[in-house]
């Protein structure tokens, strides 16, 4: 009888003790609004479960032990203020289009060049990729060469206008990376392009 009376309080003490024990290391992930204002999703998978986070400023522990819950702005600022402040400027991407068959820019695209130079100039340690593409008119091998010529022509043009980058890569994707899907041997102005990624 005496023993039974003792067991219950002892169990209670252990239970309470477990509840009051200091919180586990505060390791968690939290979702933020995308730079464009939309919100994506992340999934946290740990030894204690899997949690979907699909609300901005909501977070879950990395071990997956608890479902997503709101995280206060103060806590986000305290935990991530320095990381958020260190975020580099978001990359910018430009598309330039060509008249059929050659390396001559359309008038609208030629007008974009000063904006490109400006974007490059504003960035610390900037690196730039210039990738040439063609439509599917003509042989794939010929298009691989034409796409490279387009990328090179744009690189030369930008250098002439004062482009200075820590690193510059010039590539050709030929007709293998269409912006608009078409059958072979199809002229498509939107596929005759050079993509410029400024990072």
């Amino acid at each position: 009888m005496i023993q039974r009376k003792l067991i219950l309080p002892a169990a209670l003490v252990i239970l309470l003790g477990a509840c009051a024990s200091p919180p586990k290391p505060d390791s968690y992930a939290a979702l933020l609004e995308n730079p464009d204002g939309s919100t994506g999703r992340i999934v946290v998978r740990g030894s204690k479960g899997e949690q979907l986070i699909d609300q901005a400023r909501s977070g879950a522990p990395l071990d997956g032990s608890q479902p997503a819950a709101p995280v206060s702005a103060e806590k986000l600022q305290r935990d991530f203020g320095a990381a958020l402040a260190a975020r580099p400027p978001l990359p910018e991407r430009f598309l330039l289009y060509f008249d059929s068959g050659g390396v001559v820019l359309t008038a609208e695209s030629a007008a974009l060049l000063p904006k490109i130079i400006d974007s490059v100039t504003r960035r610390p340690g900037v690196d730039v990729s210039i990738i040439g593409h063609t439509d599917t008119l003509g042989k794939a091998e010929a298009n691989a060469i034409l796409a490279l010529k387009r990328a090179q022509a744009i690189a030369d043009l930008l250098k002439e206008k004062g482009l200075r980058a820590a690193a510059l890569s010039i590539e050709s994707h030929g007709e293998s990376n269409l912006l608009v899907r078409t059958p072979d041997e199809t002229p498509e102005p939107r596929n005759r392009r050079v993509e410029i990624s400024i990072r």
Binding site: P22, P25, D26, S27, Y28, A29, A30, L31, L32, E33, N34, P35, T39, G40, R41, I42, V43, V44, R45, G46, S47, I53, P61, L62, D63, G64, L76, D79, F80, A83, L84
Partner: peptide
């Protein structure tokens, strides 16, 4: 991370790993 993996569906997020006490 040491305790779990974050899968990404095109998005902006933060993560923090605190060293074990």
């Amino acid at each position: 991370t040491p305790t779990g993996t974050i899968g990404i569906r095109g998005t902006h997020f933060v993560a923090r790993v605190e060293p074990e006490a």
